[in-house]
Design a protein around this nucleic acid. Sequence first.
DNA 1: CGCTCGACTGTTATAATATAACATCAATGC
DNA 2: GCATTGATGTTATATTATAACAGTCGAGCG
Lengths: 162, 162
Amino acid sequence: MAHPKPGFPEPEHNHGVCVADALAAAAERCAARGARLTDIRREVLEVVWSSHRPIGAYDILADLGRDGRRLAPPTVYRALDFLLEHGLVHRVASRNAFFGCPSPGHATAVELLICTECGSAVEVQEQRVSAAVAGAATRHDFEVLPQTIEILGRCAACRAAA
Amino acid sequence: MAHPKPGFPEPEHNHGVCVADALAAAAERCAARGARLTDIRREVLEVVWSSHRPIGAYDILADLGRDGRRLAPPTVYRALDFLLEHGLVHRVASRNAFFGCPSPGHATAVELLICTECGSAVEVQEQRVSAAVAGAATRHDFEVLPQTIEILGRCAACRAAA
DNA sequence: CGCTCGACTGTTATAATATAACATCAATGC
DNA sequence: GCATTGATGTTATATTATAACAGTCGAGCG
Ligand SMILES: [Zn+2]
Ligand SMILES: [Zn+2]
Ligand SMILES: [Zn+2]
Ligand SMILES: [Zn+2]
């Protein structure tokens, strides 16, 4: 069962499905690429997916350390590097944080809509945005690299609450 | 004399003109808004404009400290906060750096094309990008905030060199 | 003038994010 | 067994950013 709807997730949705889907997709992608999804890497990915909000490396570290383990920053950063390299998470520069990619290996560029109030985010693929960016780049003799465009704003829930 | 061309600046252009224009525009804007462009703020802006590359706060600090002065980080960050508040510089999240705005007070959203090889950047206003972003936001019931979209890639000069 | 107020800057310390460098360990293939 | 490789552990440090409070300085006012 795939994630029921596009757009910002419903507050009441069954998030376990999101996590299970993400872990399954990650395992599949790693197998296909001959990459090892080790325990630590899987656990980091699971923490990243514990919400639909980009999460900082040190928050991941704190979460993994809750059961008495003492991990050091490099352990988490190395796992994140691996996950980034294989397209399983996105780096969110505007927040110094990381966000689980719901469609690892997507062919086209993606955009991230990030709510500055509640911190939640959603990955979208908007052809028109990519096309406009590509057009702008061409006009300025610029070669666009594959990347995640970050768009900051307010989600519907936060707007409704205000 | 305004900056001669849009797009990435020619290597040989008269950069003194860029700096002079930027400082004049800043002074004018501050006067119009009743804001005080103090010595430190003007000096920080000048350092930001010393190249067409986004520059980090600590690099600004080092530059200002070259003539024997010893400034502390808060001094620079406060000046940058002021310049950000009045639209005289942009924060470049993807590089933890700051970039001089060539058109302070621009009504519409702007995009920043950033070369990952040479580090240089250019601010552009692409209607189609803003429109596409606005459209995407609408479709996802998302309210876009004013911001600078960062687009990473390779400039023509770096492509030619490779 | 002497005073007060607010904006600006100085100073010290520290928080938050990220990486360098080297040691250890485990699996794999010879 | 033993070298090779990739993964993790460990310690220290680099880089970016802010908190908190003290001093300065000029504008306005009695
Ligand atoms: Zn979910
Ligand atoms: Zn929100
Ligand atoms: Zn110039
Ligand atoms: Zn370049």
